[in-house]
Design a protein around this nucleic acid. Structure first.
Length: 872
RNA sequence: UGCACAGUGGCUCAACGGUAGAGCACCCCGCCGUUAACGGGUUGGUUAUAGGUUCGAUUCCUAUCUGUGCAGCCA
């Protein structure tokens, strides 16, 4: 049985009228009042306060957020609220990454239009979930990427890329399902088969597609990682690896039987060219047909066909044993005249380098494995000491001295690398070359629920952009048929496809591809700065005021693609003079995922619907309140780490808040704190307090200091911040006990005016430091205790409390006495002793004396106010 | 296989190279017209292992082991 919010409270053994902490009674009330008062609105261009742009990765509106999702919004909200209280003009916006495949799938399975499904999810997630968590978003700036007033500008930006030659059309392989007659995304390919037809193998097909030339920015994207010192190093390293810059050379080999035919390879190790014992081409390399002899034709054709049916994923994750076939032709090594065979093998990729590789088994693992499999010669050209070791049991990958390399023998291999490139350049055998692993960004999707690419194909004018004044190209809502089969739904819609050329007015066809949804999310942070602008994507003045984002919070799963694309967009837009900053996100926080025991697998796994281990928000909010949920997600683990959800721990935070609640309401109840008079209470006079009160007063200052530091951008130690609040509340209850209260309540105990002032001071500061993390209970108690009336403000726009540094330092310290680094004794001493005084205490300490036992002291090490180490 | 991060009381986490501490749980005492209870208190650690640097190492270095994440033959 639950005792109601207002009733005769006997459950605590005291017969008095008191309130129990029931979060539901007031959480929604405050959410409504905050919104009505507009306290979370950001002011464009305010120069009286410093700006702070706090951003959290916007969600895909999948329909239902669970507690796992809530972690990231809680973290970002605490950061925003803290900055607001520190006097910043905070921009904390939210929106929806609303285009994407799940909406189309819902359309297929539920016969529901993607837009209807999406809009309904957005409404639920916004009103029933995010708002009820107590987030402090400025909803006036809400953006939804599938709305035409947003994708209008996605299209406009695409055309800017097009006009600057950063959007180009190229042939590229796609996953093609012959039954559905459509292109599949990588995640729709399961075990090499279509997700809807497990019996049908997916084929690789070449199609003409749109790309953004992110490779044009490979170097700046790599170099500027150095500017992102406040990103997790793991993310920087992942991006660095993804961009994958390699310095090396292009070397040209001439085909023995066809002297006018040459094969160029890329290598990072031109120094090993004397060790080449074969050449390998990718199976797709166009030279293959020309270089295959009649005897080898059959075997080669078979091999090429096999690899066509392997998707790129298969080729990369497949077994490591090397396969391949010889073409029957040979090339001449331009450095030493050796004649070596040409092979094809699928470990060579067509879309990296030149699609051809020189095989150096002695100094490359993969080549070594290949040579072993097919009995090709292994030539040693580098040895650790300059003496050939003879037989190699594995590839030698280190640097060393050149051997078996003609006039280069004896050189250090690093030096040789330069010499080989020089030699190649002078003799026109090759050239130095920097290669990136990063590839251009394929943005074409043969899908309906995405942003249409605003171009037309005209028989006379070619590819023509839609003029600005005709944007947006609206995604048709009526008459669309989504079945998942037969290619792009837009392509089957004559009313969409048939149009006239903007240039010659002749007949033309619209482009029917839509854009990768990563494009929508590559600029949304700029739109927030000017979200409702009907005339342009964003006013540069507003973007330049808010950008860059001061704190971005999101999951590590976006460590590479989303963040890299956004960086690319920002740099490209900077070069188009649309923004000034060259990096969008100066600080990045990657929060860990939320896990929970999953009964189906018996393991602790990421919280997700499919695993059946989700904790819903509505149920939890109803029982314990949003504040308890927030506190638990902040407290249970450091923010970057994985967090295991457990109901007990969450309830623990509810108990903590109950303790806060009871303390404050009892204080009011007992008359020790009078809400009407709280504004005119005397300041706490530290000197006039007794020892226990002094300690409590210090505890308040220590807590404010600790929480201030823990919530700062340098730390973000939310878990320890909450632990400090726990400690302070424990201290308050302990103090009551010391004052003679036997039930942890101020009711029934007399207090002096000084003590009452101290309580008011303690409560005020506690509520303030708790406010960013537990916004509802802080506001409710702030109002109940009369602070709101006295100071005329909501707690969330009240200035963050300060602390007196001198009160956070104890006057009496414990001096640790060591002999040879081992603790022998601890003595209490006043703070601020001189070195000599400390040494004297140590030397006169009986325990130390007996330990020294007449031996000579070799050294005395003093750490002021901490310890003395006697070395004998 | 490579790269990254992490191994500290039962659990989750702290500790500028200087006393290994919190919170929760357990246990004990008290309160009670006990039932989302409440107040107080006591336990509890060779800091994964082995070396090294240092007056002094949880902290720095090296190696090993274990776990997690990311990558995936990028020449």
């Amino acid at each position: 049985m639950r005792v109601g919010p207002m009733g005769i409270c006997s459950i605590r053994g005291r017969s008095m009228v008191s309130q129990q902490y029931v979060a539901q009674d007031f959480e929604e009330k405050w959410q409504a009042k905050w919104e009505e008062a507009g306290i979370y609105r950001a002011d464009d261009g305010d120069t009286t306060r410093p700006k702070f742009y706090s951003l959290v990765m916007f969600p895909y509106p999948s329909g239902d957020l669970h507690m796992g999702h809530m972690r990231v919004y809680t973290v970002s909200d605490v950061i925003s609220r803290t900055r607001r209280m520190h006097g910043y003009n905070v921009l904390n916006p939210m929106g929806w990454d609303a285009f994407g495949l799940p909406a189309e799938n819902a359309a297929i399975s539920r016969k529901m239009h993607p837009e209807v499904w999406t809009k309904q999810n957005i409404r639920f997630m916004r009103d029933e979930q995010l708002k009820k968590l107590g987030t402090s978003f400025d909803w006036r700036r809400e953006v939804t990427t599938c709305d035409s007033d947003y994708y209008h500008w996605t299209q406009w930006l695409f055309l800017q890329f097009f006009k600057h030659n950063l959007a180009v059309r190229k042939e590229a392989p796609v996953n093609w399902c012959p039954i559905c007659q459509t292109v599949l995304a990588n995640e729709q390919v399961e075990d090499g088969a279509c997700w809807r037809h497990p019996e049908t193998k997916v084929e690789q097909r070449l199609m003409s597609q749109w790309f953004l030339k992110i490779t044009d920015y490979a170097d700046p994207l790599l170099l500027d990682l150095d500017k992102l010192q406040n990103w997790p190093s793991s993310v920087r390293i992942m991006q660095q690896n993804w961009i994958g810059k390699s310095e090396g050379a292009l070397l040209t080999f001439t085909v023995e039987s066809k002297p006018n035919l040459q094969i160029t390879v890329f290598t990072t190790r031109p120094d090993t060219v004397f060790g080449v014992s074969y050449l390998v081409l990718a199976p797709e390399n166009p030279l293959v047909a020309e270089l295959t002899t009649d005897e080898c034709k059959e075997a080669v054709a078979k091999y090429v066909d096999q690899s066509k049916h392997k998707t790129e994923l298969d080729r990369m994750t497949g077994e490591k044993t090397k396969t391949g076939v010889p073409l029957g032709t040979y090339v001449i090594n331009p450095f030493n005249g050796d004649v070596v065979p040409i092979w094809i093998a699928d470990y060579v990729l067509m879309n990296y380098g030149t699609g051809a590789v020189m095989g150096v088994p002695g100094h490359d693992d993969r080549d070594f494995a290949f040579a072993k499999t097919f009995n090709l010669p292994i030539i040693e050209v580098i040895s650790p000491d300059g003496n050939p070791t003879g037989e190699l049991n594995e590839a030698y990958l280190e640097h060393g001295k050149m051997v078996n390399s003609g006039k280069f023998n004896g050189l250090d291999s690093r030096e040789a690398k330069k010499k080989f490139i020089e030699h190649a350049t002078e003799n026109k055998l090759g050239v130095g070359r920097t290669q990136f692993r990063l590839r251009d960004w394929l943005i074409s999707r043969q899908r309906y629920w995405g942003c249409p690419i605003p171009l037309v194909h005209c028989a006379t004018c070619g590819i023509v952009p839609i003029p600005d004044e005709q944007l947006p190209v609206v995604l048709p809502v009526e008459g669309i048929e989504i079945t998942g089969e037969g290619g792009s739904p837009l392509g089957r819609m004559d009313s969409f496809v048939k149009t006239s050329c903007p240039k010659c007015k002749g007949e033309a066809r619209r482009e029917t591809d839509t854009m990768d949804t990563f494009i929508d999310s590559s600029w949304y942070f700029l739109r927030y700065a000017d979200a409702k602008n009907p005339a342009e994507a964003f006013a540069s003045s507003k973007a330049n005021y808010w950008m860059p984002v001061d704190q971005y919070v999101g999951g590590v799963e976006h460590a590479i693609l989303h963040l890299l694309y956004s960086r690319f967009f920002t740099k490209a837009l900077r070069d188009m003079k649309l923004v000034q900053c060259d990096e969008p996100f100066t600080n990045l926080l990657s929060q860990g995922m939320v896990t929970k025991f999953s009964p189906s697998s018996g393991r602790i796994e990421k919280m997700s619907k499919s695993r059946g281990n989700v904790v819903g928000t509505a149920d939890f909010f109803k029982r314990y309140g949003a504040d308890s949920a927030r506190l638990f997600t902040l407290f249970a683990a450091p923010v970057e780490q994985e967090l295991e959800w457990n109901e007990e721990g969450a309830i623990g935070q509810y108990r903590f808040l109950s303790r806060v609640w009871r303390f404050v309401t009892d204080l009011i109840e007992s008359g020790a704190l009078k809400p009407d008079l709280v504004g005119s209470m005397p300041a706490v006079d530290h000197a006039a307090l007794d020892e226990k009160s002094k300690a409590l007063h210090s505890l308040v200052h220590k807590t404010v200091k600790a929480v201030t530091l823990d919530l700062s951008q340098e730390r973000y130690n939310f878990n320890t911040a909450i632990a400090r609040c726990h400690e302070m509340v424990n201290g308050l209850y302990k103090y009551l006990q010391d004052c003679g209260s036997d039930n942890g309540s101020t009711v029934g105990t007399e207090f002096s005016e000084q003590q009452k002032a101290l309580f008011a001071f303690a409560v005020r500061n506690l509520l303030l430091v708790l406010a960013p993390m537990a916004p509802h209970i802080s506001e409710e108690l702030w109002q109940q205790a009369g602070f709101a009336k006295a100071e005329g403000k909501f707690i969330h726009v009240t200035t963050w409390p300060t602390f007196d540094e001198t009160l956070t330092i104890d006057n009496q310290i414990e001096l640790v006495l060591q002999v040879n680094g081992k603790i022998v004794s601890k003595v209490s001493a006043p703070r601020g002793l001189t070195k000599a005084q400390s040494e004297e205490i140590a030397q006169n300490d009986p325990k130390i004396r007996s330990k020294i036992d007449g031996q000579t002291i070799r050294k005395l090490i003093v750490v002021p106010d901490k310890l003395v180490n006697v070395v004998i």
